[in-house]
Structures are given as structure tokens and as C-alpha cells.
Design a protein around this nucleic acid. Structure first.
Lengths: 145, 145
DNA sequence: TGATAATGTAACTAAAATAGTTACATTAAA
DNA sequence: TTTAATGTAACTATTTTAGTTACATTATCA
């Protein structure tokens, strides 16, 4: 697993907090702490999945392409991930015991991953924003006293 | 994620099917299709977790150290894994938005992983064996007709 | 129209993770 | 005491990951 899911959530979360105000890949990169190209590569995937829209040129940048309430975190995960597997598969070219075990183990991995995806699916971007945004405000407006 | 979980399950599954007959790392390696040292490294972890017992010397090898019914697959997973995280964390050294998002995203990853582990926990080695063993037999005694 | 500010993307690099291998010390059984 | 096994360190090759440079493309605006 690479960092693309964390980056994707960062992008989506940040864009949502901005409520339609476009953010540049540069701003996102500064925020996440990486290079703008790394961000653009993830943005490109989010675009293809229809989760984000990007405009070039002066005043350009990215915004969410859908309502935060209609995007769940599994969609983000799948948008940014080539291969959704998080557990390494058992080779299945073997024979006899090896093959039988391989098939069983791989089915099992799929079940476990399904459970993970169900969990991600149960959270929408809107729900994420509802938790995150108030914390951002209170973090920015320095703790009173 | 490396292949250690698949290897660990292979080991445990194979040992269980053997019902107390020790298997050498060489035999396990041939079965999985790797080098015996790779197997021994995983065996070493399974031993430390108390899931497997190994004896050196002639006639040596490994056997299960517990009843198959009292081992679940989460135990195998945790035995062979340094870091049980399957989703890459968000860096959390940032400030403001980055930090708030990071904390939220990491909590979320933990929840998703918990769902995956719960799934693994729900399957015992005995249950695995109950599915796998019959298939091994029928694979060995060539399909009739 | 031309300067500017943004994205898109290929190509390269450094570092880390992964899997495999060799070598050899240790242990236990026959 | 020979033989067959494990334990483990050290090394290598490959792949993955993250980051970077470079530059073409696109859009805005003065």
C-alpha cells in the first residue's frame, strides 16, 4: 500500500472544507507536505472517477465535483488505487495442497478486504467534513485563554 | 504488506492437515514455492506467538502447538506481522488543516483495519481445515472419471 | 496578443521494502 | 560421530515508493 489513499482523503477533505473555493495542487502539496506533482497524480485519478474537477490557468485549481453527502470513502479509496488488495495473495500456480490452500487463503483475504471496504463505504465525505471542519476552526482560532 | 500472512496461513493450514505429523521447513518451502529460510523466518514468529512448536535434528520439523479450534486467523496475522497496519498513515507532523485531517484519517484507517481484523478473528484454523482438507483429498485422489 | 499562472505528464533518481540465497553455527537423533 | 534438521546473519536483485526536474499545454487577464 502506498500513500495515495491518505493523500486522496486529504485532498477531498481539504476541498470540502473550502466549500467550492478551488485549491491549487501547490497549496495541497504544501498542506500535505509533498511535491505538487505527487498531488496532481492523485488528483488525476480523482478526476477520472468524477470526484473532483480541475481547471488550468490563472485562478485554476480543483474543487469537489459532487455533493459531499454523495461521496463515500470507499469511492475515494477505489479511485486512487490500482489494485484494491491490501493483503498479499497466495500464489496459486502450485498443485495439490499448495493450490487448495492458496485458493482458500485468497478467498479469505477477499472477505477480510470486503469488511474493510464496507467500513470505508459507511462514511461519507460530508460526515468526515462534519468532524474535521470544526476542529480546523478551533485549531486556527488559537485555543482561547 | 509482504507475503508473510499468506505464508503463515499456508504453514498453519498444512500443519493442521497433517494432524501432528511434523513438517520440515524444506517441505513447507517446496509446497509454498520458496526457500526454506523464508519459511523458517515465519515459523520463528509463529513459535514466539506460541502457535507452533519446532524441533531440530533428525526427524525434526514443526507441529501446531495448540488445538486448531483455539487458534483464529487474526492470531496468525498478528504473529507474523510487525506492523498490523494495512493502510498507509497520514503524516501527522503538520499543522492546522493538515494535522486535523491527518488525525481524522488515521483514526479512520484504524477503524477500517479493525473491521478487517474482526473478519479474520471470526475464522478458526479448525474451520479453515474443515474446508481445506476435503479439497486436498479430492485433489490427490484424482477426480473420479 | 502576450505575460502569467496554473495543470498534465514523462523521465529520472534515491531510498525502502521484498524475496531470495549463501553460509555457517547449533542442536538432536540414530 | 554422522546425519538431518533448525536458527540466523549477511548479502543481492528486484520492485515499489516518493520525490524531483523539465517541459508542453491550457486558461485568464491586462
Amino acid at each position: 500500500m502506498n500513500s495515495d489513499f491518505a493523500i486522496g482523503l486529504h485532498i477531498v477533505g481539504f476541498l470540502t472544507a473550502r466549500q467550492g473555493q478551488p485549491l491549487t495542487s501547490e497549496a495541497l502539496a504544501d498542506s500535505y507536505g509533498t511535491n505538487a506533482v505527487v498531488i496532481r497524480r492523485v488528483l488525476s485519478r480523482l478526476q477520472h472517477a468524477g470526484l473532483v474537477e480541475t481547471r488550468r490557468g490563472i485562478g485554476g485549481g480543483s474543487v469537489l465535483a459532487q455533493e459531499p453527502s454523495s461521496i463515500n470513502l470507499r469511492q475515494v479509496y477505489e479511485a486512487v488505487t490500482d489494485n484494491p488488495e491490501v493483503l498479499r495473495r497466495h500464489p496459486v500456480e502450485g498443485k495439490g495442497v499448495a493450490r487448495v490452500l492458496g485458493v482458500y487463503i485468497n478467498d479469505l483475504c477477499r472477505d477480510a478486504e470486503r469488511a474493510l471496504l464496507r467500513q470505508l463505504e459507511s462514511v461519507t465525505v460530508k460526515q468526515m467534513d462534519a468532524v474535521v471542519r470544526p476542529r480546523i476552526r478551533s485549531a486556527q482560532c488559537k485555543p482561547k485563554k
